[in-house]
Simulated scan of single mutants.
Amino acid sequence: MTTIPRSYVRALTRIRCSIFQTTFNPSSQRTGAKYLRAPLRGPAMVQYYPKPEAFSVTKLNKIYPGWNLVDIDEVVRLNDVESKKKRGKGAPKKAKTPAESRRARKKR
């Protein structure tokens, strides 16, 4: 049984790669070609997540002011803010004049 020299096999591989348009990598280094050939994930992710709602309760109230629709999420948010203010955890009051500001107090 005869063996084929390595140089012939390498030349054959180089020609095969040029014909079938694949990369010739005789040293078997990592190239990342597997990930570049893989289908893109972006379009599948875009289809998975739902599109933002075209109409919200606030938009519908602006379009049709007589309907007086109630946004339940907004009511819950306002109740949470009110309860935090009662416990003293709310946002600080805004200064209406420069004398009321914290910076004015620090300068004195």
Rank of each mutant, 00 (worst) to 15 (best):
D73T: 14
K86V: 14
F20I: 11
F24R: 08
Q21D: 11
R30V: 10
R108K: 13
F24N: 09
V70S: 05
V9R: 04
Y48D: 15
M1P: 00
R87E: 04
N61F: 01
D80G: 04
Y49D: 01
P50D: 07
T58M: 10
R41F: 01
M45F: 05
Y8G: 03
S56F: 01
N61G: 00
R16A: 09
R105I: 08
P39S: 15
G90I: 12
T23P: 10
A104G: 01
K84Q: 11
P26M: 11
N79F: 15
K51Q: 03
R41Q: 02
R41Y: 00
N25M: 04
V70I: 15
K84D: 13
N25D: 13
K86A: 08
S18A: 12
D71T: 03
K51N: 05
V70E: 10
P52S: 11
L60W: 06
V70A: 00
T22E: 00
K94S: 07
F24T: 07
L78Q: 11
P26G: 06
A33T: 02
V75W: 01
R105W: 02
Q21I: 06
S56G: 03
D71W: 00
M45W: 10
K62M: 05
A99E: 14
A11P: 04
T13D: 03
T23R: 14
K59I: 00
V76Q: 04
K86Y: 01
V57T: 13
S27R: 12
E100S: 15
V81G: 03
R108F: 07
A38G: 03
K89S: 12
D80H: 07
T58P: 01
W67H: 04
Q29F: 12
A104L: 02
E74H: 05
V81H: 06
L60K: 06
R14F: 12
A54N: 06
A44T: 08
K93T: 14
M45C: 02
I19K: 05
K86P: 00
W67C: 03
L78D: 03
R108Q: 07
G42S: 04
R41N: 02
F20Q: 03
S27K: 11
K59S: 02
K96D: 08
K96A: 09
T2G: 12
Q47N: 08
M1I: 01
F24W: 11
K107R: 15
V76H: 09
R30D: 13
W67A: 12
K59E: 00
S18T: 10
V70D: 08
Q47E: 10
R77Q: 15
R41H: 01
K85I: 15
S101F: 03
V81E: 05
L12T: 13
A99F: 08
S101M: 04
A38F: 11
T97R: 14
R37S: 07
R102D: 01
K107D: 12
R87K: 15
D73V: 14
F20N: 09
A54E: 09
F20S: 06
K62Q: 12
T23Q: 06
R14L: 13
K86R: 13
T58W: 02
V57A: 00
